[in-house]
Design a protein around this nucleic acid. Structure first.
Lengths: 233, 233
DNA sequence: AAGTGGTCTAGACCACACC
DNA sequence: GTGTGGTCTAGACCACTTC
C-alpha cells in the first residue's frame, strides 16, 4: 500500500485531488482556507500553499485573495503539450532519422511577412526547405526562414551536416516563441514530397521564435498524414 | 522605467531569463548554484529556488541534484495550450454561441471501444452528436459517448437546454484526461454539416476523461476549416 | 563521501479584493 | 477595514547523483 504523507506538498495535492475526484468537493465549491488545511494536515501553511498553487496552475482550482479557493467549473482547460524536436520525435518512435535539404534561397520578405514581423522590406532572409524522414519514409516537411540580421553566421554553416534547427538552438539566445496548430490540405508539391494524395489532411505546426524584438526564425511544419500529437493531463 | 527587484522570485526569474536571452549563459552552460545566486541577488535561497523551478517547468533550464543547473539545449519543448470550452471559445471571438443536438442514441460499445476502455461489451453508453455554432455559422462538430454506468443521471437531462459537456463538468468528479490533436479530411456528412467541401482539412481534437479507472466520456471535435489553436511561450 | 537541488518549517509582512 | 492568498526569510534536513 502506498501511504501518502500529507506533510509533503505532493501528499497534500494528492489528498485535495482525491477529495475533488470523489466529489467531496464539487465544482464551484469553496474549499477551506490554507491555515485550516495546514492545521488539518499537520503541516506548515507554505506546504499547503505549494500544493494548491500547483493545482491552480493546472487549472483544477481557482484562487483569489480574500475570496478564497474554489474547485474550478471547467477543470480541463490548460494542457501541456510536448513539442518535440523532430529528430527526437522520430527516434522516440523507434525509427532512424534523416533529412534532405531540398532548397535554400536568399530572399527579402514579402510585404505580408515584413509587416507581420516588423522587418524592413529589404531585410536579408534565408529560406530553407527540408524534408524530414523516419526510416527513409517522409515524416514532415519543413519550410523556414531565418533572419540574417540576427543570425548572420548561419550563412556559412553547412546545413547538410547539421539541421538549421539544431544550429539555431545551440547558438542563438532566445526569449519568446509563438506556436499555432492547424490543419491544411496537401498541395500537389507537398503531396509529392510527403508521398500522399493531393488534398490529404496534414497536421500543421507554425512556430516563430524571437530574440527581444527581432524575429529569429519562423517555421512551418507539415506532418505526413496520420500524425497525432498526444498528451495526458 | 520598470525596475526589477531581484529579491522577488519573479525578479530573479526575469534576470536569469535576461542572461540566457542575451547569450551571457548559453545553451548547455552550467549556471551558478542556488546559494551563489542568492548571495549575488541578495535574497534567500528559497527565492532563487522558486525562480529556477519555474524556469525548469517551462523547459528553459534543466536541473539535477549534484550536477547543477544548465541552460536547456532544446529550450522550447513544453507548450501550454489553453483548450477552451467551445462556448467560451466562441464567445471570446466575439460571436454568439448556440448549438444543435443532432442526434442521441443508446448503444453498446463496439469491440474496439470496449477493448480500448476496458468496458464490458454490454455496457450502456449514450452517443450524442452536436453541432456547435458561432453566430449561426457551423463552428465545430462534436461526437461523444457517455458511460451510463458512471453517469446514469444524464439519461434524464434535457440536453437541448444545457450541453452535455457543461452538465458533465458540473456534476462529475474527474481525475484524468487524455488529449490528442490531429488532422482529418471531411467526410461528405461532415462537409454538409460544417458547410465546407468534402475532403477539406479539419482540425481534430479527441479527448477522453476518466474517473478513477472508469472512462466517463470520450469526445471527438472536428473544427470547421480555418480553425487555428494558438499559444505563446 | 560530498555537493547540489528539493522540501519543510515558523514567522512575518505584503497585496489584493470584498465589504 | 479585514480576510485571504502571495511571498520572503533563515535555518534545517533530506534525496539524489556524481565522484
Amino acid at each position: 500500500m502506498t501511504v501518502i504523507d500529507t506533510n509533503s506538498w505532493q501528499g497534500v495535492r494528492a489528498e485535495v485531488m482525491r477529495r475533488i475526484a470523489e466529489g467531496e468537493w464539487r465544482p464551484g465549491d469553496l474549499i477551506p482556507g490554507e491555515v485550516e488545511l495546514a492545521d488539518e494536515f499537520g503541516c506548515a501553511r507554505a506546504t499547503v500553499n505549494r500544493a494548491l498553487q500547483d493545482l491552480a496552475d493546472s487549472g483544477l482550482i481557482e484562487r483569489k485573495r480574500k475570496a478564497g479557493t474554489r474547485v474550478a467549473l471547467n477543470p480541463v482547460r490548460k494542457v501541456t503539450v510536448e513539442v518535440p524536436v523532430i529528430r527526437q520525435d522520430v527516434e522516440a518512435r523507434g525509427s532512424r532519422y534523416s533529412f534532405d535539404l531540398l532548397g535554400r534561397r536568399e530572399m527579402t520578405p514579402s510585404p505580408a511577412i515584413a509587416a507581420q514581423y516588423g522587418l524592413r522590406d529589404d531585410a536579408a532572409l534565408v529560406g530553407l526547405w527540408t524534408l524530414h524522414r523516419a526510416d527513409r519514409a517522409p515524416f514532415a516537411l519543413e519550410e523556414r526562414w531565418v533572419n540574417l540580421a540576427v543570425a548572420p553566421e548561419i550563412a556559412n554553416v553547412d546545413l547538410e551536416a547539421v539541421s538549421a534547427n539544431e544550429w539555431l538552438v545551440r547558438h542563438m539566445p532566445l526569449s519568446r516563441a509563438e506556436f499555432s496548430f492547424s490543419a491544411g490540405n496537401a498541395s500537389s508539391s507537398e503531396a509529392r514530397l510527403l508521398d500522399c494524395e493531393p488534398g490529404a489532411a496534414l497536421f500543421i505546426v507554425n512556430r516563430t521564435t524571437w530574440a527581444g524584438d527581432a524575429p529569429i526564425t519562423a517555421v512551418r511544419l507539415a506532418y505526413a498524414p496520420g500524425y497525432v500529437m498526444e498528451t495526458v493531463v
